[in-house]
């Protein structure tokens, strides 16, 4: 549905060319804002934004509607009833998680599924899983995401981080068939509402890290990927990843110190 590759690409209509141009432009505009990448945008655009929460989001909504119409007209949008409430593009992952948590919102889940499931599957295949095992594992990981949505705290970890830990734990469980001991849980639950500033800053840090990974020289990026996705032993891992982890560490350290202070 939201792919411009494959057989469809060979028969691109004028409308599709126009659309592709727009999508590219929109996607790059949103990339600068952080969480939105081209894929996420496409999924959103192809599905009906039925409401917009504020005036400042109106232009976004209108563009979304326009693109959705174009997508539908070229047969790319599914327009199905299951997904009708994804509103503006600025809706962050955390909001989608909130909707799963509070309203068991399947539309929000579908949007997260479209983004994360194929990546988890790729990760598991690279880790040595067969296609069918990876598919099964991914479905289970996504089901875990649904069931544990209430444990997700956006001021503590970005959604990508959290999803990664779920996928990794599934890998340990289903591929390695081992238990995974985790550090003692800290009582983070004391704060009722996560601080929005913390959420934003952590999200920005995580996005910056994603960009740093994307911008690594090919060879180095491959090494980092292999360290995480392959079955590289600790002695094979190059300690120097070439990725600056200092900032994210200071953020995590700060959050931890605050927590320790509150616990006193």
């Amino acid at each position: 549905m939201n792919s411009f590759t494959g057989p469809r690409a060979n028969r691109m209509t004028l409308a599709q060319k126009y659309l592709k141009f727009h999508v590219k432009r929109e996607a790059s505009a949103w990339r600068g804002k952080g969480v939105w990448t081209r894929n996420k945008f496409l999924i959103q655009a192809a599905r009906c934004p039925v409401e917009y929460p504020s005036d400042e989001k109106k232009p976004l909504y209108q563009r979304g509607c326009f693109l959705m119409l174009v997508l539908r007209s070229v047969g790319l949008g599914d327009g199905t009833a299951t997904v009708t409430k994804i509103d503006s593009q600025e809706q962050s992952w955390a909001d989608l998680m909130e909707r799963i948590k509070t309203r068991q919102d399947q539309a929000a889940f579908a949007a997260l599924f479209a983004h994360f499931a194929p990546r988890i599957k790729g990760f598991l295949i690279k880790s040595g899983a067969s296609e069918s095992l990876a598919e099964e594992c991914t479905q289970e990981a996504m089901a875990t995401l649904w069931h544990k949505a209430h444990l997700f705290d956006p001021s503590r970890a970005s959604l990508s981080t959290w999803v990664f830990t779920i996928a990794r734990n599934k890998k340990t469980d289903m591929l390695r068939k081992q238990r995974r001991p985790e550090p003692e849980d800290l009582p983070w639950g004391q704060e009722a509402e996560p601080d929005q500033a913390d959420v934003l800053e952590l999200q920005e840090e995580s996005d910056r890290l994603s960009k740093a990974v994307a911008n690594l020289p090919e060879k180095q990026r491959h090494l980092v990927e292999k360290a995480y996705f392959g079955d590289m032993s600790h002695s094979e891992i190059a300690t120097e990843t070439g990725i600056p982890l200092g900032t994210i560490k200071s953020r995590i350290r700060l959050a931890l110190e605050r927590l320790r202070h509150e616990m006193k």
Binding site: F116, T161, F164, T165, V213, E225
Partner: peptide
């Protein structure tokens, strides 16, 4: 703990940039 969570975050970033495989 801090260093572990930083490496989790890096894992998330790698996952973000990973080549998707169609479900």
């Amino acid at each position: 703990r801090v260093r572990l969570e930083a490496f989790d975050t890096l894992g998330g970033a790698v996952l973000d940039q990973a080549e998707p495989v169609a479900m």
